[in-house]
C-alpha cells in the first residue's frame, strides 16, 4: 500500500511540470503557432527562479520571476516568428538552444547549492485522512495549481468567446482577419502565455522537484511536453492524462530497478516519443478528428493583406 502511494504521488509530481508546459504549448498551438522552444523557456524559468530565491526573495515572488522569465524568452520567438514571419521551426529551435545557453551562463555561480524547496501543504482534516490523505491531500500547492490551470484552460478554450476566437484563428487566420480579429496580437498573447507556463514548469523543477540548479536540468522535459500536445491530439483532458502517463514512465525508469523491472531504462525514456509517433499516425488517418481538433494553420506564418 505504501509503495502504491509513493508511486502514485511521485507520478503526479513528475507530471506537474509537464502539465504546466504542455497546457501552455496547447494554447500556443491552438492559435496556429508552433513554438519548439519549450525546453529553452523551461530552463530560463528554472534558472531565474533559483536566482530570485538565492537573492532572498520569497518563494512566491521567485516563482513569479520564473514565469516572467519564461514569458520574456517566448517574446524572442514571438518577435521572430510573428512580427518578422520567420520560419517557426527554426525560430523555436533557436529559442531552445538559446535558452539552454543563457540559463547555463546565468547559473554558473549557483553550483549545486540546494534550494529550500516549496513544502507540501497541510489541509485541515483532509490531509489527515487515512490512505486518501497521503494519496491526494499532501501535495505542494503547485500540484493543485496545475489542476486549476487545467480547468481554466479547458473552460477558456471551449466555453469562452475568446477561446472560440483563438481556435478560429488557429484554423484560418485569413477568415479571422476578414471577420475583424487582430490575428497577430492574439497570437502574441498565446505565445506569451505559453512562455509563462513553460517558465512555471521550469520553476517547478528547480524550486520543488529537484530542488537545485543543474545545467540542462530539464533533461528533455520540454520536448516531452511538446510531444504531449500531439499525443493529446490537442485536447486539454488528454494533455492531463498523457502527462500522468508520461510522468508514470519517468517514475518507472527511476524505480524500475528497485522493483526488479527488467526493461532497459533507455527504452522507457524513449516510450513517450514512440507513443507520440503512434498517436500521430493514428489521428492523421482520421480526417474528422484532424479537422475538429488540429489547428489547421499550425506553423504557417500569417501575412495580413492590405
Amino acid at each position: 500500500m505504501d509503495l502504491f502511494i509513493s508511486i502514485f504521488t511521485a507520478t503526479v509530481i513528475a507530471a506537474t511540470p509537464l502539465i504546466f508546459a504542455a497546457l501552455g504549448e496547447l494554447i500556443v498551438e491552438k492559435s496556429g503557432v508552433l513554438n519548439l522552444g519549450i525546453e529553452g523557456m523551461m530552463l530560463m524559468g528554472a534558472v531565474f527562479g533559483v536566482w530570485a530565491h538565492f537573492s532572498g526573495m520569497p518563494m512566491t515572488l521567485a516563482i513569479l520571476i520564473a514565469i516572467v522569465a519564461g514569458a520574456l524568452s517566448s517574446l524572442v520567438f514571438g518577435i521572430l516568428a510573428l512580427t518578422f514571419m520567420a520560419n517557426q521551426y527554426a525560430a523555436g529551435l533557436a529559442l531552445a538552444i538559446f535558452g539552454g545557453g543563457v540559463s547555463a551562463f546565468i547559473g554558473r555561480g549557483f553550483g549545486s547549492t540546494p534550494v529550500d524547496a516549496v513544502q507540501p501543504i497541510k489541509i485541515p482534516w483532509l490531509s489527515d485522512l487515512p490512505f486518501l490523505g497521503p494519496l491526494l491531500f499532501q501535495f505542494d500547492p503547485l500540484v493543485y495549481l496545475s489542476l486549476i490551470l487545467f480547468v481554466a484552460v479547458s473552460w477558456f478554450l471551449y466555453k469562452s468567446k475568446a477561446g472560440l476566437a483563438l481556435r478560429a484563428i488557429g484554423e484560418s487566420p485569413e477568415s479571422a482577419h476578414a471577420v475583424g480579429y487582430p490575428v497577430i496580437m492574439i497570437r502574441y498573447v498565446a505565445v506569451l502565455f505559453g512562455g509563462a507556463m513553460a517558465g512555471l514548469g521550469g520553476a517547478y523543477l528547480s524550486l520543488v522537484y529537484t530542488p537545485l540548479w543543474v545545467e540542462n536540468m530539464t533533461a528533455g522535459r520540454g520536448w516531452i511536453a511538446l510531444a504531449l500536445v500531439v499525443f493529446a491530439a490537442w485536447r486539454p483532458i488528454r494533455v492531463l492524462l498523457g502527462a500522468w502517463l508520461f510522468g508514470g514512465m519517468t517514475i518507472l525508469q527511476l524505480q524500475g530497478q528497485a522493483i526488479g523491472l527488467k526493461i532497459p531504462t533507455e527504452l522507457l525514456s524513449a516510450l513517450p516519443y514512440i507513443a507520440t509517433i503512434v498517436v500521430l499516425v493514428l489521428i492523421s488517418r482520421n480526417r474528422m478528428a484532424m479537422v475538429l481538433d488540429f489547428p489547421a494553420s499550425l506553423a504557417k506564418p500569417f501575412r495580413p493583406s492590405s
Binding site: 484554423e171 485569413e174 477568415s175 479571422a176 476578414a178
Partner: peptide
Amino acid sequence: YQHFALFESISVVENIALSMPDRM
C-alpha cells in the same frame, strides 16, 4: 465574400457569434 470567411471546425452559430459584437 466569394471565398467564404467561415471556420469549418466549429458550428454555424459559433461562426456567427464570432462576428457579433455582443457577449456570447
